[in-house]
Simulated scan of single mutants.
Amino acid sequence: MSEDREVALELALNAVIQTAHLAGMDVEDLTEFAAELLVTDRNHPRWHLNQAIAEIQETVATMVKPQPGPPG
């Protein structure tokens, strides 16, 4: 994967998680649900699943969590 695509995907993951947080979702629950979904999907090699879960967890752990509120 190109470095540009990797950076773009990282930005996208962060934006989706922050959007969920701003919409009032519990991002810890979201992380758990996403991990469960990945683990039950048997179409990917185990290494990729573990790495994907770790990336989600790291993004949630390191992101700034602004207070949820109405958009705009």
Rank of each mutant, 00 (worst) to 15 (best):
D4A: 14
R5I: 13
R5F: 10
R5T: 11
E6I: 08
V7A: 15
A8R: 10
A8T: 00
L9E: 14
L9T: 10
E10A: 12
E10K: 12
E10L: 03
L11R: 14
L11A: 11
A12M: 01
A12I: 03
A12K: 05
L13T: 03
L13E: 00
N14G: 03
N14S: 08
N14W: 02
A15N: 06
A15Y: 03
A15L: 05
V16W: 11
V16A: 15
I17Y: 14
Q18H: 09
Q18D: 03
Q18I: 10
T19S: 15
T19R: 15
A20S: 09
H21S: 09
H21L: 01
H21A: 06
H21R: 09
L22I: 08
L22G: 08
L22M: 14
L22R: 13
L22F: 15
A23R: 11
A23Q: 11
G24L: 05
M25C: 15
D26W: 05
V27Y: 03
V27G: 01
V27Q: 02
E28K: 11
D29F: 07
D29H: 09
D29G: 06
L30N: 06
T31L: 11
T31S: 15
F33A: 11
F33S: 08
A34V: 02
A34T: 09
L37R: 13
L37S: 14
L38V: 13
L38K: 13
L38Y: 13
V39T: 01
V39P: 02
V39M: 09
T40G: 03
D41W: 12
D41A: 13
D41N: 15
D41E: 14
D41R: 13
R42W: 03
R42T: 10
N43M: 05
N43F: 07
H44P: 00
H44I: 12
H44D: 01
P45Q: 05
P45D: 04
P45F: 01
R46G: 00
W47N: 00
H48V: 10
H48R: 12
H48N: 11
H48E: 13
L49D: 01
N50M: 07
Q51F: 12
A52R: 00
A52H: 00
I53D: 10
I53A: 11
I53W: 10
A54Q: 08
A54K: 02
A54G: 07
A54W: 00
E55G: 03
I56S: 06
I56F: 07
Q57S: 15
Q57T: 14
Q57V: 13
E58G: 09
E58H: 05
E58Y: 07
E58M: 05
E58R: 08
E58D: 08
T59Y: 05
T59D: 04
T59G: 06
T59N: 09
T59Q: 11
T59R: 12
V60P: 06
V60M: 04
V60N: 02
V60A: 02
A61H: 05
A61P: 03
T62Q: 15
M63D: 01
V64A: 07
K65Y: 07
K65T: 02
P66A: 10
P66N: 08
Q67C: 06
P68I: 07
P68C: 00
P68L: 00
P68G: 02
